[in-house]
Design a protein around this nucleic acid. Sequence first.
DNA 1: TCATTAACTGTCG
DNA 2: CGACAGTTAATGA
Length: 236
Amino acid sequence: MKEEQTLCYSCANENCFIRKHLHIEQMAAYVEKKQNVVCKKSDQFITEGAPLQGLYFICSGKVKTVKTGINGREQIVRLTKSGDIVGFRGFGTSKKYLIGAYALEDTVLCNFSNETMLEILKHVPEFTYALMLFYADELNKSENNIRKIAHMNVRERVIDLLLYIHRKFGQVNGVVDIELSRKEIADFAGTTEEQAIRIISSLKKETLIKTVGKRIGILNVSGLRSEIMEHKYLTV
DNA sequence: TCATTAACTGTCG
DNA sequence: CGACAGTTAATGA
């Protein structure tokens, strides 16, 4: 994990929250203050229990954020890709931010300190408003997640995850464009690695999905979706 | 070649 | 459904 500086104005990431507001003159001064963090695969750049140093915007790559339970089991809270924001829950408070974040592949992050963020929020209302909409949307998703965990069984949660990564990361050459270990799938679905493996292999037998190494390809989206239809809400 | 890791299977409580 | 034991295949020092 090292730090260097790249310029927002030459950035290729069209989805970036910062980049969308670059046309506003006031942004220029703040954009110069960001720090770039370059992570290799499986590097941890946010430690559970450590105070947060501002907001991270994913420039390129993919990231998982996790919470560790008492028995040492991890719960994956979110999966994020370029253009997404990491660390927004702990922003603005002096409290410890009890979440960890790991790079799932080589990724580049843009880190804005708490001070810089505060300045932007105070002086660039367009940005502040957009961020507020983002928070509202995230809150909505997280409420859906609560219902999901409460009402879905393990098989349904794994299916839900598969549909989610299929929609969010897309499929390349017939497999979903994100590399998750079976353990990580289990951590997201709130189960153990063995259970996740079993469900994956039975879905494979039913030709709803296929596997290529650790990669997973979705063969029958509507077939999978019909299994969790009664829960209406899908992971967004 | 040996050691390590991850995917997978069987079985029990 | 979770926990544990054990097998297999791939990878790499």
